[in-house]
C-alpha cells in the first residue's frame, strides 16, 4: 500500500539539514505501523511525504499504486482527496461546524458526501450522543475522535496520524489507539508517528527513526501488547 524507496529529504540551502536519509519502507493494507523516534528524528517529515504534504528531495514514494514523488500539484490534491486521510495532534477540526458537519466535511472532501451518514460514523467512535455539538463544546478526546471520524468518512485506504494521543490523557489516548487499531483491522494501512514508545507496543510493526535513518523495523520488542497492558 505504501512504498518508500531510497527516500531522502533535505531542508535549506548551503549546508542542508538532512531530515531523512535513504529511507526504504513498505506498509501493507491492514497493517498498523508506528513510526517511533525522538524530536528531530524525521518521523513527521516521513508522514508528510507519505501524505503528499511535502515532496522528497530524492527517492520514490508509491502509495496505493500512485507514484507521488513526481506528481503534479493537481495530482497531489487528487491523491490527498482519494487516498490518504489525516489525523493531527491538535485535531484541526473546524470550529464553525458541528461534530456531524466536521465528519460530513471529510466525506464531502473525498466526493462521497451522499454515501456517508455522519451520525453512524460518530456512533462508531463513541460520539453518538455528541453529533450536534460544536468543537468548543467537546473535550480534547472527543475532538480527536471527531477528527478520526472525519478521516474515516473519507473512505480512503491510508490513514496517517501525527501524535494522535499527544494532547490526550492516558484513558482517552488508549481509546483513540483502539479506534486506530480497528481501522487497520478493517483493511486500512494505518501509519502513526509518535515519540511515545509505549504506544508502539500495540502496533503490528515498529519503525524506529534516528537522525533521519531507520535504525530498526520489526514487531514491537517483547511482542505485540494488548491495550489493557499499556500505561504512561
Amino acid at each position: 500500500m505504501i512504498e518508500l524507496l531510497n527516500v531522502s529529504k533535505r531542508f535549506g540551502d548551503g549546508v542542508p539539514i538532512v531530515a531523512l536519509a535513504d529511507v526504504d519502507l513498505k506498509v501493507e493494507a491492514g497493517e498498523f505501523v508506528v513510526v517511533l523516534g525522538p524530536s528531530g528524528s524525521g518521523k513527521t517529515t516521513l508522514l508528510n511525504m507519505v501524505g503528499a504534504l511535502d515532496n522528497p528531495s530524492e527517492g520514490t514514494i508509491i502509495v496505493d499504486g500512485v507514484d507521488i514523488s513526481n506528481a503534479t500539484r493537481r495530482q497531489l490534491f487528487d491523491f490527498r482527496r482519494n487516498t490518504v486521510s489525516f489525523i493531527f495532534q491538535s485535531f484541526n477540526i473546524f470550529p464553525g461546524l458541528t461534530a456531524a458537519e466536521n465528519v460530513q466535511f471529510g466525506a464531502d472532501a473525498a466526493g462521497r458526501g451522499d454515501e456517508v451518514n455522519p451520525a453512524e460514523i460518530l456512533a462508531a467512535v463513541g460520539l453518538g450522543d455528541r453529533v450536534d455539538q460544536f468543537p468548543h463544546e467537546l473535550s480534547g478526546g472527543e475532538q480527536q475522535r471527531v477528527a478520526i471520524a472525519r478521516a474515516l468518512a473519507t473512505g480512503n485506504p491510508v490513514m496517517l496520524a501525527d501524535e494522535p494521543t499527544g494532547e490526550l490523557d492516558f484513558v482517552t489516548g488508549v481509546q483513540i489507539l483502539e479506534l486506530l487499531q480497528k481501522q487497520a483491522a478493517d483493511g486500512r494501512a494505518v501509519l502513526v508517528v509518535t515519540h511515545n514508545r509505549e504506544i508502539s507496543r500495540v502496533a503490528d510493526r515498529v519503525v524506529e527513526l534516528s537522525s533521519g535513518r531507520i535504525v530498526s523495523d520489526g514487531p514491537p520488542v517483547g511482542g505485540k501488547a494488548s491495550l489493557s497492558e499499556l500505561h504512561w
Binding site: 482527496r81 484541526n92 473546524f94 472532501a109 473525498a110
Partner: peptide, 13 residues
C-alpha cells in the same frame, strides 16, 4: 490558515 491547511491536507483545492 490552519483551517485552510487542513482542507488542503484533505485534498480540497
Amino acid at each position: 490558515q490552519r483551517e485552510h491547511a487542513t482542507m488542503f491536507a484533505y485534498g480540497v483545492r
